[in-house]
């Protein structure tokens, strides 16, 4: 029963993440949305590998590695966002002047 709750909650959170990624214009919001998505994925991984009933050390190691990677990627993305802000004065990439120059 708890598993169903976890999966439903995770799916909801995942959906919120996708929605945020699509809708948000500010890069910070997009990055937060991606982080929300990865959190829900970690919950699903935890449940898929047995949940509370029989904790699986391998799954927890995977999730821990996943969290580390998500943190590293987020830190890097934030740095990239700051350089974009310094260059263009805006922290978004929805633009008009793409292709050529």
């Amino acid at each position: 029963m708890t598993e169903v709750v976890f999966v439903l909650a995770a799916s909801l959170v995942f959906g919120i993440g996708v929605w945020g990624l699509l809708i948000a214009e500010h890069l910070l919001r997009k990055l937060l949305a991606l982080n929300v998505m990865s959190s829900s994925v970690f919950v699903i991984m935890l449940v898929a590998a047995g949940g509370n009933a029989s904790p699986d050390p391998v799954a927890q190691a995977l999730i821990l590695t996943g969290i580390v990677i998500a943190v590293a990627a987020t830190a890097f993305a934030l740095a990239l966002m700051i350089s974009i802000y310094r260059e263009t004065g805006r922290a978004s990439i929805t633009d008009e002047d793409d292709d050529d120059r």
């Binding site: 991606l34 994925v41 991984m45 449940v47 047995g50 995977l62 993305a77 990239l80 974009i84």
Partner: peptide, 24 residues
Amino acid sequence: AMRYLLLGLLASVLYLLAVGLIYG
């Protein structure tokens, strides 16, 4: 680079979800 990174991270999340399901 930012557009590539955002799509790349989205792709990674999808891949990771699949890995979790398969491991389960």
